[in-house]
């Protein structure tokens, strides 16, 4: 399926949280496209808005937070029409948060693999019951058929002893198996887009390797698109086709994974890559650091949010305006004045 049309197009998305202490601009104008079958990685440090972006797509932003602007365009084959090549486009940002349409879409067409597998399951229902519930809710099948489908999906995710595990409770499983169960639940309705929010931060490195391999295999087999959110640059390098780097609610840079890692354009991406102690760096030498710390959400710097920490800060430009996200390569874009000619004074 090589349709030129993206599956999901986010345009100038803004999510704000009006709190007593002030307004938190968690997402401040984010745009990107996810193609069918693509693994789209979002990286960033805490507070960069990667999780809020994910929640906005699923319409799970908790009040008082709300989407204050932008579009989340979801494209799907027109359901009842004879013309099967036709696609329809819906703006998820316009739907009722808990309305019928959003509820039928969430979990069925767009599914989530959450960060904490323990919190994703109810401890008082068996895992099988919970997966069956999801299947029955979104597909018109009998309980018996739902059980068969649940078992099939357990086989698919490589769950050992699947029959017994359907009758188990989440707390009876190890971290790795629990993560497999969560993936099974997310896949149970054949979603066209899977959102994985830090799916391996709660598990150990050998389990992480198992989970990443499983996700890669399933993705190749089912050709579903994945939005993969993580702060771990190693994980993103291994998983993603295309990467978006976020900082304080804005996109700093986006591009194919190889360009991001081997030809990063934005000073923030460059600094981030330099500062990881990798198994190949010179032992015990001082690591290059990003100076300063992440600003407090109430104290957003004006202009480019990275300018107070940026080694290539240009006084008079960077703090004066937010740079636009513009192409810096065939498929790579960066929002940085280094790549934008100074405006001709009027």
């Amino acid at each position: 399926m090589t349709s030129a049309e993206p599956l999901l197009s986010v345009r100038d998305l803004k999510v704000h949280f009006p709190l007593d202490e002030g307004l938190v601009r968690a997402v401040e104008g984010v745009s990107f496209d996810v193609a069918p079958g693509q693994v789209f990685g979002i990286v960033g440090e805490s507070g960069c808005g990667k999780s809020v972006t994910m929640k906005a797509i699923l319409r799970l932003v908790e009040p008082p937070g709300r989407i204050v602007g932008g579009q989340i365009l979801w494209r799907r084959p027109r359901q009842a029409g004879e013309a099967s090549s036709q696609t329809e486009e819906i703006d998820l940002a316009q739907l009722e948060r808990n309305g019928r349409e959003m509820r039928s879409l969430r979990g069925a067409e767009i599914a989530l693999i959450p960060q904490e597998p323990m919190a994703a399951f109810s401890p008082v229902h068996t895992i099988g019951d919970q997966i069956r519930e999801a299947i029955v809710l979104h597909q018109s099948v009998s309980q018996r058929e739902a059980r068969r489908l649940a078992l099939e999906i357990f086989h698919d995710v490589g769950m050992p002893m699947p029959e017994q595990r359907l009758e188990a409770y989440s707390w009876q499983l190890s971290g790795g198996l629990r993560q497999r169960a969560v993936i099974a639940m997310a896949l149970s309705c054949n979603p066209r887009l899977l959102i994985a929010d830090e799916p391996t931060t709660a598990v150990d490195v050998t389990t992480q390797a198992q989970v990443l391999r499983l996700l890669r295999e399933l993705q190749a087999r089912r050709n579903s698109a994945i939005i993969f959110i993580t702060h771990d640059l190693g994980v993103i390098a291994q998983m993603a086709d295309y990467v978006m780097v976020m900082y304080l609610g804005l996109v700093m840079e986006q591009g194919p994974v190889d360009d991001i890692f081997h030809a990063p354009k934005h000073p923030y991406t460059q600094a981030l890559l330099r500062s990881i102690p990798s198994v190949n760096s010179t032992p015990r030498a001082a690591l290059p650091t990003v100076s300063g710390s992440l600003p407090h959400p109430f104290n957003r710097p004006p202009g480019c949010p990275f300018h107070p920490r940026c080694p290539q800060f240009m006084p008079g430009r960077c703090e004066a305006a937010v740079p636009e996200l513009l192409p810096v390569g065939p498929r790579q874009m960066a929002s940085c004045f280094l790549y934008q000619a100074a405006e001709v004074p009027a």
């Binding site: 490195v205 390797a209 990443l212 994980v235 390098a237 993603a240 890692f261």
Partner: peptide, 25 residues
């Protein structure tokens, strides 16, 4: 050796996770 192989390399040109451990601790 398995622990070392499981670390995802922060480089898309290096494919890691070849020899992966089965099962749980």
């Amino acid at each position: 050796a398995a622990l070392l192989a499981a670390v995802p390399a922060p480089d898309p040109r290096v494919r890691s996770g070849a020899a992966e451990l089965k099962g749980d601790v």
